[in-house]
Write a protein that binds this DNA or RNA. Sequence first.
RNA 1: CGGGGCGUGGCGCAGUCUGGUUAGCGCGCGUGUUUUGGGUACACGAGGCCGCCGGUUCGAAUCCGGCCGCCCCGACCA
Length: 436
Amino acid sequence: MLLSHAFVPTLKETPSEAQIASHRLMLRAGLVRQTSAGIYAWLPMGLRVLRHIEQIVREEQDAIGAQELLMPTIQPAELWRESGRYDDYGKEMLRITDRHDREMLFGPTNEEMITDLMRQGAKSYRDLPQVLYHIQWKFRDEVRPRFGVMRGREFLMKDAYSFDIDYAGAVRSYRQMMLAYMRTFQRMGLKAIPMVADTGPIGGDLSHEFIILAPTGESQVYYDASFEEIDYQGGGCSHKSDEDLQRFYDLMTSQYATTDEKHNLINWEKIPADRRREGRGIEVGHIFYFGTKYSKAMGLAVAGHDGKQLIPEMGSYGIGISRLVGAIIEASHDAAGIIWPDAVAPYKASILNLRVGDAACGKICDTLYTALRGQAVYDDRDARAGEKFADADLMGLPWQIIVGPRGAANGVVELKRRVTGERLELSVDAALIRIG
RNA sequence: CGGGGCGUGGCGCAGUCUGGUUAGCGCGCGUGUUUUGGGUACACGAGGCCGCCGGUUCGAAUCCGGCCGCCCCGACCA
């Protein structure tokens, strides 16, 4: 992307409405613009991040055999009347009337709709288990939207739904999903901790929140540092093996991890002091098992082995995709700007031409830009070096390739790693290899 | 939904209490010169229905009434 032609409206000053770091930086780096309270337009740079996060989530969902579909944003009120939630949901639900006076709503979640689809399609135990997910915009008319994209009214969410013929199957689906979540967050460069969540009226222990750590998080959390050392991607952690799943689940649930409401000093102090971690956390995902709540209410039943009808056991599993963009920035920024983890960065590198018009600089930049094929932002603007440095740090791409007249004459560029600030003088080829 | 605050060029603000030439400042933007490795300097310039509607007044950004929008704290949530 040529910065001279790109719509990346960076701001030197912070709009007054933005209070927290991620919100300020998203506005300043030209990622989003607010259009109403809690509703944002995603500008080109921000959209790329959103897409990258979405893609990692998609790949990890697919990897455990979940199937993607896409349900509409607008839903008929009748479905929600069937589950009883039309009246229960309250003012958070955005209700809409169409021209025929039909009652509609902008979906805050999709349990009813997916249950409806499943009852149309699944007739026998042979049709189960099924895990379906979609990545779709949701709307919850929060009383008080805040923190930019982290607490918006309109938000992009991955929500998955599992259907199993019995409790054991539901538990298996639940654990597979938990594994997928840990892999997902790890791939994004995040430290995510699963914590037992309140299950509400359903009870049981099958509900976990996934919290990532950031200084400005909404709640205080405590956990055992050993969470940070686990590799979820490797072998011995297959979602297909019940033994692996059991071992994984035991590992997740045996270590201390809790929010301050459930913090227990006695158990906390059993952990060796050097492994105690505490900090602020942001919830980025939530999974829970809810049994037959919707299947029963909405008449989803399939024929069992014995020919009798059985009511499938369900679970649902959310990841706040748009929230993650803000959450990642909360967890990864400094005074100068965003520090994107490689996996979700909008581009790999910024190429800074410090002397536009200089033949040697131009030639090297062109070479770099071509070699990086769509993975770089080329700052070819006719602007001062200082402005380019400031914007590059603000945008936070993992690498900066600084091309100035001094080095260019000798075929040398400077490679800066955003996260460490470390700089190296290298040949063009060596820099490209380094970036990978 | 309770409490508080704010709406003035793209962004940040002053001016409002105490009504009165042409509504100001910094940044950004445009042109020129200058500078050339961390937002350079100078000059010139463009850009405003002072959130909206109504009222008071000879006269309203400023006073009064209503409405709308946005932010912050709390209760609530992916």
